[in-house]
């Protein structure tokens, strides 16, 4: 009986591990928010890397990069601080996640704060089925 050559199996497996480790990106969104995302037929897969993440949960609580903040002014200062070290438009994208049911009074000041700080809003949504 001819033995199957398995000497290189270990090498192949370790190469696969290294490939996965290099290619994978660790999720930076530390908040496990319970939000119902809005639907639209125009949403596309986000291709650009985002400089910061802003989220508003169903209770209207605002989060900046996973940390709870008091109001939209905190978001503005946070985005300003993050964007201070950027040089191109591609680095100005700020992810914005918000519950679909929240009223304008809650989310619009935050969106304006991001815009005032120079961020380009990447509003997260889901594709219509």
């Amino acid at each position: 009986m001819v033995p199957v050559p398995i000497a290189s199996m270990g090498d192949i497996a370790f190469l696969l591990i290294i490939f996965f480790l290099v290619c994978s990106e660790v999720a930076k969104d530390k908040t496990n928010l319970q939000v119902t995302l809005p639907n639209s037929e125009f949403v596309k897969k986000t291709k650009t890397a985002v400089a910061a993440r802003v989220a508003i949960d169903a209770d209207g609580v605002i989060y900046f990069d996973g940390a709870r903040v008091e109001n939209s002014k905190d978001v503005e200062w946070g985005v300003r601080a993050v964007l201070a070290s950027t040089s191109t438009d591609d680095q100005r994208h700020v992810q914005f996640k918000c519950d679909a049911a929240l009223p304008k009074e809650t989310f619009e000041p935050v969106m304006k704060a991001i815009a005032e700080a120079g961020g380009i809003i990447e509003a997260v949504g889901e594709k219509n089925q």
Binding site: K112, I120, I121, E122, V124
Partner: peptide, 14 residues
């Protein structure tokens, strides 16, 4: 867990 984020881009003038 593969995260597939879908979004729209809006550059609001300030």
């Amino acid at each position: 867990t593969l995260v597939k984020v879908k979004s729209i881009t809006a550059d609001l003038p300030s």
